[in-house]
């Protein structure tokens, strides 16, 4: 999706991608994470849209003059596409975070790099534990006068790192128990490991993958030929779509809405079965 967004710059394409992505996001967690980002997103977009035309004077269609500089429609349009593009990147990454933190990603990862994946999973499990330990260390050290709020910068920096140092010493001592617990349950034994969670690719998945790949190629090819793109500089090109534009647009639409389609199908089935 990110690739697609980078490829097309036609505002209609971009707006469609953004809207679909937002729907995908909402279907994941009802847009909870998205709402947190909304203020940043809107401020950033507005700023880009407003500032770009005043900074860049390229383009031929002059709207008005501001302090002797020309403000052009082209630069304005460019600002809009930039803002949309950035918004898309952000929304993609918000969705990405949601999916990634669900450990699904790591399962797939563990097929290729099992040891690295295990280390990441263990580290993720350790982080909350380490935070709790740091809080405890912080309480004890604060009460013996090793403060993080009083004193000059250097003292505070030193007191802060002392806490991390206590955490290090403490946790290294405990590491032996973690190791024993892993060995006691057969980690590191010879022989093949198995996995509880399985992701089967059945025939239908392959068909879908094939279709999606085909549509993707179509989009790339179309994009390379200049479809789905709008000429902005030096002069704003025409808005209208050729029929090939429509084909490219449709394939893009299907690709982007694919996750939505899958989730939606489940929901509809669920509702119908009741």
């Amino acid at each position: 999706m990110l690739t697609l967004a980078m490829y097309f710059n036609h505002p209609i394409f971009l707006v469609t991608i953004l809207l679909l992505l937002i729907f995908v996001n909402i279907s994941h967690d009802r847009g909870k994470d998205l709402r947190k980002w909304l203020p940043t997103l809107s401020i950033m977009s507005t700023l880009i849209i407003l500032i770009n035309p005043f900074l860049v004077s390229r383009g031929t269609t002059i709207l008005f003059y501001f302090r002797g500089k020309q403000v052009t429609l082209e630069a304005f349009m460019y600002g809009i596409t930039m803002a949309l593009f950035i918004a898309i990147i952000l929304v993609v990454f918000i969705s990405f975070n949601l999916i990634l933190n669900g450990n699904r990603f790591l399962y797939i990862f563990s097929k290729i790099l099992p040891r690295i994946a295990l280390m990441i999973m263990m580290a993720i499990r350790f982080v909350p534990l380490m935070k709790r330990r740091l809080n405890e260390i912080g309480d004890v050290q604060r009460l013996r006068g090793m403060s993080m709020t009083v004193g000059d910068f250097k003292t505070r920096v030193r007191n802060g790192m002392l806490r991390v140092q206590i955490l290090l010493t403490w946790s290294l001592e405990e590491a032996i128990h973690v190791t024993n617990s892993m060995k006691a349950r057969g980690y590191g034994t010879e022989g093949k490991k198995s996995s509880y969670t399985l992701y089967f690719m059945d025939k239908r998945d392959w068909v879908w993958l094939f279709i999606l790949a085909g549509l993707m190629m179509l989009c790339f090819y179309g994009g390379r030929l200049g479809y789905g793109q709008m000429i902005i500089y030096p002069e704003l090109g025409p808005w209208q779509f050729f029929w090939i534009d429509w084909i490219v647009f449709c394939s893009m639409f299907i690709i982007t809405s694919f996750p939505l389609f899958i989730e939606g199908r489940e929901k509809i089935r669920w509702k119908l079965s009741i």
Partner: peptide, 29 residues
């Protein structure tokens, strides 16, 4: 089973933690 409950847990999810041993020994799904 060891003394400190905290130091024996390897995984982030309860389910993954439970199947950890079985996975290591390569049990069938």
């Amino acid at each position: 089973v060891f003394q400190d409950p905290e130091n024996q847990i390897i995984m982030d999810d309860v389910m993954q933690e439970l199947v950890f041993g079985m996975e290591n020994l390569g049990y069938s799904p």
